[in-house]
Simulated assay, not measured.
Amino acid sequence: MDVKIIIENDHESLITTTILKSKENKNVEVVPSACEKKKKKGVFNPQWLRDSQVNSFLREYKLDSTKILCIACNETFSIHYGGKNDIDRHIKLKRHINNMKSFNINRQLITSTMKPNKEIEETAAAEGVFVYHGGKHGHSYLSQQCITNVLKTIFSSSSAISKSMSCGRTKCNSIAVNVLAPYFTQKVLTEVKQAYFYSIMFDASNKGNTKFFPVCVQYFSKIGVKKGCIIDLIDDADESATNIFENLMTVIKKSGLPFDGLTSIGADNTNVNMGNNHSVYTLFNNEIENLFKGKLS
């Protein structure tokens, strides 16, 4: 039996093939074994970030270990071939030098103006309590702004929180509308769902040339009957019975209240609201049997 070895070299792999030649001139080829010789890539080394000259603007690029992120230039560059030399080459670029000038200034501004998280949270909590107190006692946003200025003047030397408080008219309105109102509305709706049975009250109210329909709920809670809790404010000039009914149905569905838990409705004793023919009450009564008719005095 003769043995013939064929060696092929295609720059990337080394393949050896053994052919066995028998007396019957039959060739039996053995499956070739391939050993690919891969090039070692330059990858990120965490030790580079210990260098104080580069650790302020260089970051690891986790999506590709052969690249590194420069936050000053807001770009990634390859370290595949040069490794640390690629970093040194990037630092000497004119574009990077110009970006570092503004980057250092921004870092100084951010560091000097940022407050500890605890102080920010305490100030925000104080402002929220202050606006809640003013809303509960019917204080206007203008009066709250004046009180804030007085508090900052009196307690600026003894209280960092008082010194940091800023409750102008716009901010008070934003806290009340975007923070406090959604929280307490959701809290009321949760209690109504737990109580299941409730009544709805509504009435038209004019503010300037705008007509509003505040929608209130009354229900039994763990501490007794709660009434007059506003869950929505509808802006609509159409005072027809059909339109009011559709708006109230929209509020009930949007709030997630059980429709069959509605026991009564309360409104002014007008034909549109409480009349016997095509009123808001009759439209609800067609959907819910034994609905009580409440009247607002």
Rank of each mutant, 00 (worst) to 15 (best):
K193H: 03
K67D: 03
K21P: 01
Y219R: 00
V129G: 03
T153V: 03
L142I: 05
L58A: 01
V3G: 04
N9E: 15
H90R: 12
F213L: 15
F130C: 02
F213A: 05
V192N: 03
V129P: 00
S157E: 08
N104S: 11
K115N: 07
E75S: 14
M201G: 02
L109Y: 11
E287K: 15
F77G: 01
C35A: 09
S240D: 13
K41G: 04
N271R: 03
M274L: 14
N273R: 00
S143I: 12
P214Q: 10
L248Q: 04
T113C: 10
S157C: 05
V54E: 01
I252M: 03
T76R: 04
V30H: 08
S143M: 14
N9I: 14
K92R: 15
L142M: 08
T282E: 11
N99C: 14
F213P: 05
D64R: 06
R59W: 06
T148S: 11
Q53C: 03
Y81R: 13
F202K: 00
N25P: 02
N104R: 11
I120P: 05
N247L: 12
I200N: 06
K163Q: 13
I252W: 04
P46G: 03
I120Q: 15
L257P: 07
D88C: 11
D238E: 10
I68M: 09
N85W: 03
E24W: 05
K101I: 09
F220P: 00
L142S: 08
D203F: 00
I154P: 00
H96W: 10
K295S: 09
V28K: 14
K207P: 03
V179E: 06
